[in-house]
């Protein structure tokens, strides 16, 4: 019987090529036309002048790497990712763990945490202005409790507003991912740990965490994806030239585009793309460690 299975399985493996092509072709064709070719063209533009006529070699790359604005934006973007992705992962894991331990209200809290995903950017912008502008509600609260008001959008606090936005919007999503991971952990493991006399912390450290490792890959890649999306809110709330602390690569890309600086934009984008590719290749080890 197992032999029969093995033969069928081999056949499936052997014969998948043509079927895969058929299944993938429509989507991949579109991806190629609408995303891959444009991306290749972007790479090409990094080596040409603005009108895309004359080859200028690495000039744009050199100029980008020497550019103060690029350095600031790249550092900020890296800092943002380094701060907010782990923070989101910890906070959402915490939320998920708390939520699991109180079953009755679970549904209500899940809805509450997921709701921000549905809020359109335009509405968020209005909300954030009411909250974080100088005469905004956040400062009213600070004043009421006797603290100094903070210029949220015009000081280093802007960075944390951005982090808060990101957490607010994505916590629910990540929480669900963690819940799935937690559900996948077999009860017997916990029972065994309990029998061995492990306390809650030890159980978490030696049972929960190792079992969640596979989930980390997905959570982090989706967190990364969503960290790029936070730019929309940042741009619409604070404009093209926000406080230094929240001046991200996308601000620079956007402003270069406004100035028709497409060569440097393309060069910088290519570098970003390469960096992302490297990150993905590392992450895929987590994602696909089974294959």
């Amino acid at each position: 019987m197992s032999k029969a299975f093995a033969t069928i399985w081999r056949n499936v493996r052997k014969g998948d090529g043509p079927a895969a092509v058929a299944f993938l072709a429509p989507s991949f064709g579109g991806i190629t036309v609408f995303f891959l070719l444009p991306l290749i063209d972007t790479v090409r533009r990094g080596f040409y002048d603005v009108r895309g006529v004359n080859f200028i070699g690495l000039e744009s790359y050199v100029s980008v790497l020497n550019n103060q604005a690029f350095r600031l934006a790249a550092a900020n973007t890296l800092k943002f990712a380094a701060v907010c992705i782990p923070l989101l992962m910890v906070v959402s894991l915490g939320t998920a763990l708390l939520l699991r331990s109180i079953k009755p209200m679970g549904k209500f809290f899940k809805t509450a945490f997921l709701l921000p995903m549905a809020v359109p950017v335009a509405s968020i912008v209005l909300l954030w202005q009411a909250l974080f502008n100088e005469g905004g509600l956040a400062n009213t609260v600070l004043l009421r409790v006797g603290l100094e008001p903070v210029a949220f959008m015009d000081s280093g606090a802007a960075f944390w507003v951005l982090v808060f936005t990101y957490l607010w919007k994505n916590n629910g999503y990540n929480m669900i991912l963690w819940l799935a991971g937690l559900d996948g952990i077999s009860e017997t493991l916990y029972e065994a740990a309990h029998a061995d006399g492990a306390n809650a912390l030890q159980t978490f450290r030696y049972v929960t965490l190792p079992c969640l490792l596979p989930t980390v890959g997905v959570v982090s890649i989706l967190s990364l994806l969503n960290s790029f999306r936070v730019f929309r809110e940042a741009y619409l709330v604070a404009g093209a030239y926000p406080n230094d602390s929240m001046y991200l690569l996308q601000h620079l890309f956007n402003n270069w585009f406004m100035n028709l600086d497409i060569s440097r934009l393309s060069a910088a984008a290519t570098m970003l793309g390469v960096a992302l590719l490297l990150i993905i290749l590392v992450m895929r080890r987590f994602l696909d460690e089974k294959d």
């Binding site: 991806i31 995303f35 891959l36 070719l37 991306l39 994806l225 585009f257 970003l272 793309g273």
Partner: peptide, 12 residues
């Protein structure tokens, strides 16, 4: 491709 910001590929 999922991770590429829109500005990067806007012109092409």
């Amino acid at each position: 491709l999922m991770l590429m910001p829109f500005q990067v590929t806007m012109v092409p």
